[in-house]
Amino acid sequence: MLTILFDGIAYGMLLFVLACGLAVTLGLMNFVNLAHGAFAMAGGYVTVVLMNRYGISFYWCLPAAFLFSAALGAVLEVTLYRRLYAASHLDQVLFSIGLVFMAVAGVDFFMGGQQQLISLPPELSGRFNLLGADIGRYRLFIIVLCALLTIALQTTLTRTRIGSQLRAAVDDGRVARGLGINVSVIFVLTFALGSGLAGLGGALGVELLGLDPNFPLKYLIYFMIVVTIGGTSSITGPFLAALLLGIADVAGKYYLPSLGAFIIYAVMIAFLILRPNGLFFREGGR
């Protein structure tokens, strides 16, 4: 019981790190980026390649995955995404599905379609017992790391200049520009940060979620659930939604394995009916 809760929290935390970039592009920049998972996949493959081909330590792979995905995000933002901020949602959906398809086929071409495996450093593998719960070391590592990231992110968004500039740029681009805020730079940085976090999540998730070329499609629904249920008015919403989803999914798979993902979809639809604007949506707030 406690173990399930613990695993669920670890899974939820990981989902949050994977999806929070999407919450930003979707909620703040109003861009339906269905290709978000591709950035996570990129991070995952960077880790696999660095570890398995070049023998680089797992700990170094994490920042590398972050930087690689962030750079990829920045490049794509400047070259492609930027043109579509004002486009219709249909265009954004088509465009980002196109990117996912290209990423899936491209990775398949270069890396093959099989599951990728990594071997974690010895101190992160195995389990120990605490207060009757069976604690996986790696899951504990994920929880601690993701919690730190979440706090850092929350602080950045609410306390710093960058955060307030982002909010200004999103609320009214023209006014923000008038105030001397460089909106395009802010957007690139934000997009890169979101992509980088996804890449980091992808790297952390190789062990937990698995990694193959279909990753962006397989987990798309999870990211979207986190964002739609959590709402996009703050990062606390997606955070709580990710935790709930993680716990529900792990518990569901444990107690009712035959129903598979059925419960998750059913719960999501129920949420969408009851709260079409997200669980933590506040009227009047953005």
């Binding site: 465009f95 196109g98 990117l99 398809f101 398949d108």
Partner: peptide, 20 residues
């Protein structure tokens, strides 16, 4: 035959960027 999905993706992206 194998990478058909890539080309669909490319068509989609190009279609949107050129303007539907």
């Amino acid at each position: 035959p194998q990478y058909w999905m890539f080309w669909i993706g490319l068509v989609l992206v190009a279609l949107v960027l050129v303007g539907r």
